[in-house]
């Protein structure tokens, strides 16, 4: 059944565990959560360890800082929060506070004194909206009562048309 000559093409070798490249990438999962994965090379860790000294390094806390950008002025940071990570982790799912926002993160270590030293910066990610927009283009506007009816029709997606017609008759 099987051509043994071709067996080796897709077997035997596995993917590398590390690529030897410092990297932090974030991906959007849904309007309220993101996924981050990273690789921090040994040389980068060593560099920081040498910079800080053994004692400080032993007490340092590995963490990710999540930055929320301003709405409408996206080059500005509105706020940030920190997530404490397990030392041996290389990925994390985390919640973010707002939909339709740009986020980026930094990965690094925090000293016992609270000083955060970032090592990697991620790409930018925008979370999706989870509701109808409040922004209305005046040239593209139905009268309120019509808009309500139209949107109501779409939002009744748990009902099929026949059920809906029965309900309307009631």
């Amino acid at each position: 059944m099987t051509n043994p000559q071709l067996q080796f093409l897709h077997s035997g070798v596995s993917l590398p565990q590390f690529y030897g490249i410092d990297r932090l990438v974030i991906l959007p999962r849904d309007p309220y959560s993101l996924f981050a994965y990273w690789e921090i090379t040994e040389s980068t860790r060593e560099k920081l360890k040498n910079e800080w000294g053994d004692a400080a390094w032993q007490q340092a806390i590995f963490q990710m800082r999540v930055y929320k950008h301003q709405w409408g002025r996206e080059e500005q940071i509105e706020s940030f929060f920190d997530i404490r990570l397990q030392d041996d982790s290389n990925n994390w799912y985390f919640h973010v506070p707002d939909t339709d926002r740009l986020y980026h993160t930094e990965l690094g270590w925090c000293t016992a004194g609270g000083y955060f030293r970032p090592v990697l910066r991620s790409n930018l990610v925008r979370t999706a909206r989870d509701s109808i927009s409040d922004i209305i283009d005046e040239e593209w506007q139905l009268p309120d009562w019509k808009a309500r009816k139209l949107y109501r029709r779409i939002s009744l997606y748990h009902l099929s048309s026949p059920e809906m017609f029965r309900r309307r008759k009631l």
Binding site: S133, D134, W140, L150, Y151
Partner: peptide
């Protein structure tokens, strides 16, 4: 998907229709 257009910005006048 429905919410790709329905939740567009600005609000789409005709929904998904």
């Amino acid at each position: 998907a429905t919410h790709g257009v329905l939740y567009a910005v600005p609000r789409p006048k005709y929904g998904v229709y």
